[in-house]
Every structure is written in C-alpha cells, then in structure tokens.
C-alpha cells in the first residue's frame, strides 16, 4: 500500500546544519524514536506536533508534510 502522507523532515534537518533527530525531538517535546517513526512514515503525528515541526524549520506545514490522494481504481 502506497504511503499517503509523505514528509521532508530528513531533508529539512540536513538543511538546518544537519540537525539530529534528538535535537528536533527535544525542541518539539517528543522522543527521538517518535521523530524517527514520523520521518520513516510509520507514524502520523498530531496536528500540534506537525505544526511544531514546521515551526522549528521555519516553513509552512505543507513544506514539511504532503498528503497524496490515493488513486481510486476505476471499475
């Protein structure tokens, strides 16, 4: 099944002086494991955490997360 929510956290971390997952986690108040799970697309964060991540990187939310509508199969 294709991922519907994708993110650019890895790239944004790299662009922000190679910020570590731990540093990002501390800034948004979650664990490093949660940041890793979000980054890998295994966990979709709450809106609050999503906005906090965008705030840390100083970009709008849609620059961090993208929602890809799943293609509907035609019958």
């Amino acid at each position: 099944m294709a991922k519907t929510i994708e993110n650019n956290i890895r790239r944004l971390r790299f662009e922000h002086k190679e910020m570590t997952q731990q540093e990002l986690a501390e800034q948004i108040g979650v664990t490093r494991q949660t940041v890793n799970a979000i980054e890998l697309g295994k966990y979709s964060p709450s809106l609050e955490v999503a906005f906090q991540i965008a705030e840390v990187f100083g970009v709008p939310l849609d620059k961090v997360f993208q929602y890809n509508l799943p293609k509907r199969s035609r019958t």
Binding site: V30, T31, T34, A37, Y43, V49
Partner: peptide, 11 residues
C-alpha cells in the same frame, strides 16, 4: 534524561 521525559503522543 529519557527517564524524566514524560510519555509523548506516540508512546
């Protein structure tokens, strides 16, 4: 540090 951190939303 981890022990003092409260559970986050995923946990």
């Amino acid at each position: 540090r981890e022990a003092k951190t409260p559970k986050d939303e995923r946990e």
